[in-house]
Design a protein around this nucleic acid. Structure first.
Lengths: 224, 224
DNA sequence: GGTATCGGATACCGCTCGGTATCCGATCTC
DNA sequence: GAGATCGGATACCGAGCGGTATCCGATACC
């Protein structure tokens, strides 16, 4: 039930390409760090999960700190792309896009599970090391700014007036993404699948949207 | 020679009462664990922060795990009481209570700062050890249930119909508390002081603006 | 006031981890 | 095809940690 009999390159003799080793190590690090904690997981654990030994880690990343930094770079970018892609469907209305984004962010796949676990560890690390010289805080700020811009654009296109500034909506969106993930992992029953989407709809002025339909229902509350 | 000036009870010769030592150790543990991480902080660190040595910890809590468990018991209860107290003002309207609770939970004191840092560590621990036999998850569930009941009661008293089920509102409240704390610690400027209160007001049907009684008259700089 | 007891201090142990030096075999170059 | 090179494997080290056994002095008890 693990990832298979032999993770990747087997103990075999072939030499895998450089990028392949890097990828395998990064993926294994994401999984292992998420599950055991960055402090709790040893480099031996990470390397073994990828089918290598500690030497491969030091050869590719120089140190544990280097591995973590590479992970930030790799994962935060991926998360940003994922979120923006979900919002960038120009055919939907604003509340629809809000719901789509919510569903996307709430999608309870193991991938998301691990991501949030990892995210919180990276965030704690960033807070502890102080506000200076930290790539995680910077990346996170970029993500928030991008979301804010997307929200503002969509609101303008839809002709809707937001009940809150776009920047605040972006902050709330990120906060809800993390906060609801926490609640969901603690008790899945406490977080309905559509909760995120409904709240986002409220935040962008969707009112009491009970509409669980896909597209704008016949009972469209606000067409003019 | 002089063992050096020790922080709290001095190297003095008096013997402090039992509960006093326990309290000092718990407080020191909360601070130290929050700042360095539960895994990152050694028992020597914790004991030293309280002005004692490791022996005091083992005498009082038996193990590091025992110390953590005692901390859960001590802190989660305190947090629950704080939240409920903020909501239990029977003189206020529902949105007002929502705002009061939001302000209370957002209050950016160092105490709250450490609390959220500690909370997330305890939560991660609970998620990792599996859903079984964990007091933290159970306590958290009690907290959520209590909040849900308070929300439902207040809504009924106020004659307001909630746009979401009370249980969902409770979940959102906890999620926002954690999520916004995270955003705030990452970038304080991104989370206005009144954001939590305004969102809570939205969640309980408080309409679009934060008019909760004597606040802004509503002739804000709104244009179309 | 002499003794028993309790509880924190001290010394110590085994283990794990990050990091380093080194080895060795597969790939690359000519 | 023979040597150069690169990169992961292996062996090893020192530090720091949780945990334990023991000590010792201040309080409690009669």
């Amino acid at each position: 039930m693990s990832t298979g009999p032999t993770p990747l390159p087997a103990a075999g003799r072939r030499r895998p390409p450089r990028d392949e080793v890097r990828r395998a190590l990064l993926d294994a690090a994401a999984r292992t760090f998420a599950r055991q904690g960055i402090d709790g997981a040893s480099l031996d654990d990470v390397a073994a999960a990828a089918g290598f030994t500690k030497g491969a880690v030091y050869s590719n990343f120089g140190s544990k700190e280097g591995l973590v930094a590479a992970l930030v770079d790799d994962r935060v970018s991926a998360y940003l792309d994922l979120g923006l892609a979900a919002v960038d469907d120009p055919a939907a209305t604003l509340p629809e896009r809000a719901r789509a984004l919510g569903d996307r962010l709430t999608a309870a796949s193991d991938e998301q599970h691990d991501w949030h676990l990892l995210f919180l560890q990276l965030w704690q690390r960033a807070v502890r090391t102080g506000p200076a010289d930290d790539s995680f805080v910077r990346r996170h700020g970029e993500l928030r700014a991008a979301v804010a811009e997307a929200v503002a654009n969509h609101a303008e296109q839809a002709g809707t007036e937001l009940p809150l500034p776009a920047a605040s909506v972006a902050t709330l969106l990120l906060a809800l993404s993390n906060g609801l993930a926490i609640e969901r992992m603690t008790d899945p029953a406490a977080v309905p699948d559509d909760l995120m989407g409904r709240v986002l709809a409220l935040l962008v002025g969707g009112g009491t949207t009970g509409t669980t339909g896909g597209t704008t229902g016949g009972t469209g509350p606000d067409q003019r």
